[in-house]
Design a protein around this nucleic acid. Structure first.
Lengths: 226, 226
DNA sequence: TATAAAACAGACCGGTTGTCCTGTTTTGTC
DNA sequence: GACAAAACAGGACAACCGGTCTGTTTTATA
């Protein structure tokens, strides 16, 4: 038994410091990671409490039900993650196509660096929860809609600058998101991020690589066991 | 209480007819539907047994564990469903692009007819189970690989006939699958199949529809409650 | 028809899960 | 400092889940 635990167990009743926001964030952190790694149904609140170092009373005070916790993860964390990885970079890019390309490459590079593909948080939860509960579905659909609109808006901005005249903004956004989502699904299942680059290359219509050129095969599968 | 139940409950010990294959198929039917509608973890074996009209002993005889049942669903049913909806039509089509287009349209039409989007069986399970268990992941990855190879092979056949000279078979297949998977994910979350047509149109580079043309919005959401 | 194996019936159990409930402590407010 | 509300502690519990177990019936084989 570690000294810390022993002290906590045998020491005199220590002072407690209330930090509702901090505790809430800690729970959200652990829940986000657990939902991403194991999914909603496979995540047990007991283990979540133990990992976060939170008691049942505290958890129930901030999130009355498991559903409420998941809804908070979706609306706060998943949406924010998508903003950071997709929406902001696309907005900041020189054009919509450049933005999409940059995101694809950045994600592929990050996955190869990590050596493990956990999949897209939004798609992971969307698949598991869309049919399970209307509230889940609506929350997830809203995030998808915002994603699509951000890309479509970027195309429209390009068009106002005289570019992308032959492009339909909504269609382009739909395909970009679908290609990314589907590629992540394949990458997660195969534990190989190279399919992201394949999809990007085909999406951009880049020339076929010379015959006989070895296709780099990134062997991943180095499960991060914390 | 229905007459049937009363008879079954009070009548003399009736004859039993062993039908291992039929019973196995019935269980597989119900499991496939339940996994598709609710996912693996949310599917309880108890309800599955009740729906299929099968006792615990019989279920355990054919499928020792829940995992074994899921593996059978994946290897037999999910693979077969993909063969029927994707691989066979693509092989039978005049070209790879025609095949992909036909599948997209057929699925979109079917979804609109059904009035409900349950999502792609393969992707549904892939998202939930890929990280949960290596056996699941390998089985699912194999199906993805076969899917991709079938499309790539069709491109190669086109190339031997003098077409698609500038197309990379593997990349084309990857994007076709990713676009479909991702579009199904969005369609399932939004309960709107129109995104499938959007992705197909963009994938084929079809001309932008005239400005002001109403985008047909298929309102779905007619959950099949059996 | 004898017999062994396969097919099936149905109860049982240990473990887990999400939620609830009753207290206690901290914190903001007058 | 009084006091009410918020924040937190921690146990209890009922429902449920998946797996196991024993026993019975059917079926294939000889």
């Amino acid at each position: 038994m570690s000294a810390e635990i022993a002290r906590a167990a045998k020491g005199p009743p220590r002072k407690r410091t209330n930090d509702p926001e901090g505790l809430r964030n800690k729970v959200l952190d652990v829940a986000e990671a657990s939902f991403q790694a194991r999914g909603y149904h496979a995540s047990a609140l007991g283990e979540l409490m133990a990992t976060a170092g939170v008691t049942g009373g505290a958890l129930h005070h901030h999130f009355p039900t498991k559903k409420a916790l998941a809804l908070a993860v979706i609306e706060e964390r998943v949406a924010a993650a998508l903003d950071e990885t997709w929406i902001s970079p696309v907005r900041a890019a020189g054009s919509a196509r450049e933005g999409v390309r940059a995101v694809f490459e950045a994600v592929a590079a990050e996955l190869e660096r990590q050596g493990f593909v956990r999949g897209c948080p939004l798609n992971n939860l969307a698949h598991e929860l869309s049919l399970a509960d209307p509230d889940f579905r609506l929350a997830l659909a809203g995030i998808f809609a915002g994603w699509r609109q951000a890309i479509a808006d970027k195309i429209r901005a390009d068009q106002q600058a005289g570019r992308e005249q032959g492009t339909d903004p909504e269609r382009f956004a739909a395909l970009a998101i679908a290609a990314y989502s589907g590629a992540m699904s394949m990458a997660k299942t195969a534990q190989d991020a190279s399919v992201l680059r394949d999809c990007l290359a085909e999406l951009e219509g880049s020339p076929t690589p010379p015959f006989g050129a070895k296709r780099r095969r990134r062997i991943l599968l180095r499960p991060g066991k914390p």
